[in-house]
Nucleic acid binder design. Structure first.
Lengths: 114, 114
DNA sequence: TAGATATATACCCAATTAGCTATATACATG
DNA sequence: CATGTATATAGCTAATTGGGTATATATCTA
């Protein structure tokens, strides 16, 4: 599994995304990370292992604690991959803007706009 | 499965990312999309279904063909999610820059730098 | 050294996934 | 209408995943 595979796979789980979001505020122990979830400690440890294997977190040692910290570089790579598509979605948003403009100017059509 | 789950899960596969990359150039039929891969046609159809369910492509009808086109909006959402982390990785890159600067100024340390 | 606390590992299970082959469906054309 | 072309679906399998419980390991502290 290459880096991008691992990064996107790790991000595909909401528990793992929430853990990463928490780590924006700084290091945290497994207990602290587990607290918001109604999930067993081993399950959280498993999620942390997925994140660690993907290079999205690294871990230290503080007595019994193994504090986790965010390693954002793989996220930067994922972001770069997504950047290739930016022109396209901005194009789409322009079209959406145009549609919204038309709807304001004229009567609403009631048409699905998906 | 929410939108972000579905988007990231879809992006976790290199075949699917390659298909999306191909679609930047414009619409393509299933045959055309399958051509670069040594993979059966049904397997490609399955990947396309994953992309479609994630809202990353939509499909038309042109005689027997079901042309696929890119729908980049969910990618924009994924990008927005990643933007939260930008400050952090840019911080890391600064630190890396600082390290590189130090290495240029002084002697290399030979230390592992991850 | 004997707990207590924090974390990891082993193992089980059900669901999902990614591939395959065989077959069905949709449409075009001779 | 018969055949060819494009695509989808069904059904199989092996591997992976995400959850759980029980237990092991590591470290502090009394």
């Amino acid at each position: 599994m290459n880096q991008l595979d691992a990064t996107f796979a790790a991000l595909a789980d909401p528990t793992r995304r929430a853990i990463l979001a928490r780590l924006i505020q700084g290091e945290a122990s497994v207990m602290e990370l587990a607290e918001p979830f109604s999930m067993s400690q081993p399950s959280i440890s498993k999620h942390l292992k997925v994140l660690e294997n993907a290079g999205l977190i690294s871990r230290g040692r503080d007595a019994q604690r193994r504090p986790c910290r965010l390693e954002a570089k793989p996220l930067a790579e994922a972001n770069e991959w997504l950047e290739r598509y930016r022109k396209i979605w901005e194009g789409n948003f322009q079209r959406l803007d145009a549609l919204l403009g038309a709807l304001q100017a004229n009567k609403p059509t009631g048409e699905a706009e998906q």
